[in-house]
Each structure stands twice: as C-alpha cells, then as structure tokens.
Nucleic acid binder design. Sequence first.
DNA 1: GAGGAACTGTCAATTTATTGACAGAAAAAA
DNA 2: TTTTTTCTGTCAATAAATTGACAGTTCCTC
Lengths: 210, 210
Amino acid sequence: MEEKEISQAVIGRLPRYFRYLGQLKDEGIERVSSQELSDIMKVTASQIRQDLNHFGGFGQQGYGYNVGYLYEEIGKILGLDKEHKLIIIGAGHLGQALANYVNFERRGFIFCGIFDNDPAIYGTQIRDIEVRPVEEMEDFIKSNNVDIAVLTIPKQCAAAIAERLVSCGIRAIWNFAHVDLNVSEEIQVENVHLLDSLMKLSYNLASRRK
Amino acid sequence: MEEKEISQAVIGRLPRYFRYLGQLKDEGIERVSSQELSDIMKVTASQIRQDLNHFGGFGQQGYGYNVGYLYEEIGKILGLDKEHKLIIIGAGHLGQALANYVNFERRGFIFCGIFDNDPAIYGTQIRDIEVRPVEEMEDFIKSNNVDIAVLTIPKQCAAAIAERLVSCGIRAIWNFAHVDLNVSEEIQVENVHLLDSLMKLSYNLASRRK
DNA sequence: GAGGAACTGTCAATTTATTGACAGAAAAAA
DNA sequence: TTTTTTCTGTCAATAAATTGACAGTTCCTC
C-alpha cells in the first residue's frame, strides 16, 4: 500500500495531529500553518511538515494547510474511513470497560463480540452484546469478518489464545495482556502494557525529571 | 538523583527488562548473559549492555548478569522498592477497572481513593474503598500523602481537574483522558491514549506492515 | 596454575530521527 | 499589476539512538 516504509515514530504522531486538527475543525478554523500548529502542539514546525510530507503534499505555499482536508486525509491514512470490527477476549473489568467505551465506535471501530471462559458471566449483556464462551470465538471470527481482537486476559492464557486467533485468520491484536505475543510477523500487534507505563511514571517521579 | 539525563527511550525499555528478568527468576535461573537475554527478548545484546550501563555495571565479565540482583536493581531504578499511593479520578468503567487491578499493588502502587462527580455512585465500594465526591479530592491528597493521580475522566473536565491536582501538590499524573495536559514541567505526566494506540494499529493493519 | 572460552563495559561506526535553512510558489498588500 | 509577505516542500546539517567491535577481566577446564 505504501511505497516506502514509514517509521513507527511518524505513525505514532499521526493520531495526535488528527486529534488537534479535529479540535481546530470543531472550532471552525479553516486553515492552519505548520508554524501555528507547532505552537499549539509544542513540536517543531519542521517536524510537522516533514511528517505530513511522507504521505504527500497536503499544504500549499503561502496558504498553509486546509484543516478539514488535512483532517480527512490523515483519517484516511489511519484507516479511519473504513469500519473495523473488533471483539474482546476476556470480559473482566478491563474488557468490560473497553466494551463500554463508545468513542471507539465514532472512529469506525465496531465492538461486536465479547468472550470469556467463566460460565458464570455467559449471557451478561454489555451494550446489547452478550458475553459468549471463548469456545465460540473461532466460529464467530470467521462468520462475522472480525478484524481486530482485543486481549484483556491474564498473561498466562494470552499466548494460547493468540495462537488460536492467528490460526483462525485474525489480522490484528490489541494486546493488554502483560506479555509479548510471539506471533507471525504478518499479524499486527499493538501492545498496551499498563504496568510498564506506570513504572515509567514511577521512574520519572523518582528521578525528578526536568 | 541521576547524574546525566537518561533518555526516555532507555527508560521505556526498563520495565520490559524487569519483566523478563522476573520471569527468569521465577524459572529458577540464576545467571544470564546479554546474548541469552537478547535471544529471548528479540533485541540486540549490545542494546541491553548499553542500556544497563547507564545505571552502572551490573554484570561481570566472563559471567554475565546475576538474574536476582539485576532484577532487584532495575526494580530500584524504577522506584518499585518504594510504595506509591495513587488515587483515581473518575469512577466510570475504566476507573473502576483500574481500581480492581490488583497487580499494581504487587509493584508498590497502592490504590487508596477514588473520586467522581456523580452523586449516584458516591459510597459505592471498590475493594473496600468507597467512591468519594470529587470535592473531597484536595483534602484527601493532602492528608494521605498521595503521589499519583490517575485521570479516567472525559477530556472536557481533564484540564480543570489537572490544574486542581497540581495546585494541591500532586507530583505525577497517569492520564487516560484523551487530551494533552498542560501542566508545569515539574509534574510528571504519563499519557495512555487508548484511541491513539488503536489508530496506530489501524494504520499498520491498512498498510500491512510486514 | 596455565590456557582457552565466555563475557562485559565502552568506544567508534552506522543508522535513524530531528531540526534548520532556503528556493520558489501562492496569497495578500500596495 | 507589481511587490512584499507568507508558508510549503525538500535538502542539508545536526543530534540521537542503535549496532558493531574489541580490549581486558573472569570463569572454567585440564
């Protein structure tokens, strides 16, 4: 899809650009220069221009960037113009919290199933979707064309579940389990290691950064 | 505390080293070389040695690293040898999920209060701690010596709450609200922008990164 | 206890990321 | 219209991060 491989550092900044542009759009602002945006976002104007230029020339000399257009384009680059079906594996507190987070839907991430291995909660309704036994996971993925699996399960089961997900054709895993998944390179994995993040905060607190 | 500023790239890798070392320790393994660790962790041995060396020579030529010792030392560097009291602002689904996550306690992060602005849930018990009105937040922080505030509130209220937190002396914020907080440089902020993470996954899915 | 193998710590080389500079295009002003 | 200003896209320079190389220490074997 892309000609040259674009670094994850750049990709990681796109959602933030998207967020600020959405905000400017909501404020009714139609154009913005890299300099203005850099002031708001506290990054260099050079970085903004460089980043955006990886994907093509969205701006115009002497004018800047059209907020609405750039917002749309970054949305497309991020794949937000398409719907992604996602299922959640693990209906514990975190799984349920994510299932209830409606903002994902606004960006095209459609929550369509949640699975657990505890019979006591089978059938529990979360936003009109009932908790299913994890045994039904494979069939559900195949028959519902699921793109993304969200892993909110204990680390002990994560590897086994990941393997099952891969073998039934899932393409992406959003992993909240506190282990690194060892799956094929073709499967996209995005880790959210909350404890790691908290430890980083703890370090910075202890070392009184800046 | 530290002589030279250590880059956030290095800090960000420490929790992962810590995790793998903990695992080796649990398996009863006493020593490990940077080469062995690099094989397991899929990073270069050079990077491991370089990273660890920022904090001092933990290894021994011809022997490698003592797993238990290195584990302890990284724990100290991350500040995990001390207890950190944390409170959660926002008792929605995510706030409650985090409040219920007992693994934080194992690393010294003590959940000791949760606040909300919805009177309907005041008094609700979460792990023996009741949801308090957010008005009591400031007094609670001051009288309980709270280190970290976890923000699980809508982005609209985040800035105002952050300001209140800062003015009553909080030193660190773990921010789950989908905005960048504009607080003094002395306050450590660690953002967990779930939607950004999901968008990154979406991009990689769309561009089929290897 | 001597010799070879296994390692680290560190320095240098390389790669990657970020920032600065500027030519030239468009817009705004005169 | 002409001139001046604004602002991008891009290239070059700088800075930062990662990797490679190796001297020298320790361990292990014989």
